[in-house]
Amino acid sequence: MLPWSTEFAGRLDEHLFSSDLLRDNPLGDPHERPLWVYVPPGYDDDPERRYPTVYVIQGFTGHVEMWRNRMPFRQPFPELADAVFARGEAPPAIMVYVDAWTSYGGSQYLDSPGTGRYHSYICDEIVPWVDARYRTLADRDHRAISGKSSGGYGAMITPMLRPDLFGALATHAGDALFEYCYMSDFGDVVRHLRAYEGDIMNWWNDFKSRVSFTKEEDGKLLEVLGYTASYTAREDGSLELPFDTVTGVLRPEVWQRWLDLDPVRMVPRHADAMLSQRAIWIDGGTRDEWYLDVAAQAFRQALLDAGVKEDVIHFELFDAAHGGIDYRYPLALAWLCRRIAPGETS
């Protein structure tokens, strides 16, 4: 495995996208974002051909430039995806790599007064922009979204909220079943906040003043801060944590607002959207530290209970923890592309 980049068989176009919806966002984050659009081999040879599209989103703290990261003896996903098409393992497709980073680490791909309008940014700005500039099959039956972890969360909820745009999804260890993946960290957060007078913003101010992740508490506190900003920010942008930061007692009304955004619990309310999906890939590692394999099982069962047919779903658990599962992405990509290719039926 070469330790440096390889030449693409297709083409990766790098754009700077100026978003009106992210302009003046609550955190003052840039409204101009990198946007990568990959076109498969042969795209430039047949100017009449149109292609399905797969949107790719990242996990918490992820941003587009991280797709260049190269682990020892592994290739970055854009190279692996290019190889899928170069080898003919899947029908050719356009891929769109979207940046939804925030100062708090992520947006969960939702519209929130705590972070900004990231759901609308993807659906109402990025999708039409790509369709206008590339030869896409501009129809939800030929458009999929894929992600891991928080990106997997976004991949689950975006087709629920916008089934008019997305007709297929792949979620790798996506955030769901919140009482398993989030609540187990709440006690540690309460302990850590003792050093910050029970105020997570005191920790945040300290975090910004020094080298990041140099204290034990940084990871968990950043996650809770980011998720709270996405799920339960007040209209003025201030945050309502789902538990008392001194006693640890749950705040039932606030916690319920988190649960209302849990994909497992969202399925019954968006059953028609899920019934319309052409393809749903769900996987997770059996040693996932946040029990997202259990969440994957729960999400699958919620879909089946809603009436989604088993042949629409690819479900798989595999021996792995939460990290280092990027080798799964090309498998889902090839499967999705076969399902959303022209001429395929759901």
Rank of each mutant, 00 (worst) to 15 (best):
T6P: 01
E7S: 13
A9G: 14
R11S: 12
L12S: 06
L12P: 01
D13Y: 15
L16Q: 14
F17I: 10
D20Y: 08
D20P: 02
L27R: 10
L27G: 07
L27C: 05
E32W: 09
R33E: 10
R50Y: 03
V54H: 00
F60A: 03
R68L: 11
R70I: 04
F73L: 14
Q75F: 15
F77D: 01
L80R: 12
A83F: 13
G88V: 11
P92D: 13
I94A: 06
M95G: 00
D99S: 07
D99E: 11
G105F: 04
G105D: 02
G105N: 02
S107W: 06
Q108G: 01
S112L: 08
G116N: 03
Y118K: 01
H119Y: 11
A132C: 07
Y134F: 13
R135A: 07
L137G: 02
D141I: 03
A144I: 04
S146I: 12
S146W: 11
G147R: 00
S150Y: 10
G151P: 00
Y153N: 01
G154L: 01
R162E: 08
D164P: 00
L165S: 02
L165M: 08
L169R: 01
A170P: 00
A173C: 14
G174E: 06
G174V: 04
A176W: 03
L177F: 13
C181F: 09
C181L: 01
Y182F: 15
Y182R: 06
S184P: 04
F186C: 01
F186I: 05
G187I: 10
G187R: 14
D188N: 13
V190K: 05
H192G: 10
R194L: 12
E197Q: 14
D199Q: 10
D199P: 00
N202S: 12
N202L: 12
W203R: 03
D206V: 09
S209Q: 08
S209A: 15
S212D: 09
T214W: 07
K215A: 14
E216M: 12
E216R: 13
E216N: 11
L221F: 06
S230I: 05
T232M: 04
R234M: 11
G237V: 08
S238H: 03
E240Y: 02
P242S: 07
T247H: 09
V249A: 15
L250Y: 08
R251Q: 12
E253R: 11
Q256Y: 09
R257H: 09
R257Q: 14
D262R: 02
P263F: 06
R265W: 08
M266D: 05
H270P: 00
A279K: 08
A279G: 05
I280E: 03
I280W: 02
I280C: 05
T286M: 13
W290V: 05
Y291T: 03
Y291W: 14
L292K: 00
V294T: 12
A296Q: 03
A302S: 15
A302F: 09
L303T: 02
L303M: 13
G307H: 04
K309I: 06
D311E: 15
L317W: 05
H322D: 01
G323K: 06
I325H: 02
D326M: 10
Y327A: 11
C337F: 09
R338K: 14
R339I: 04
E344P: 00
T345H: 13
S346K: 12
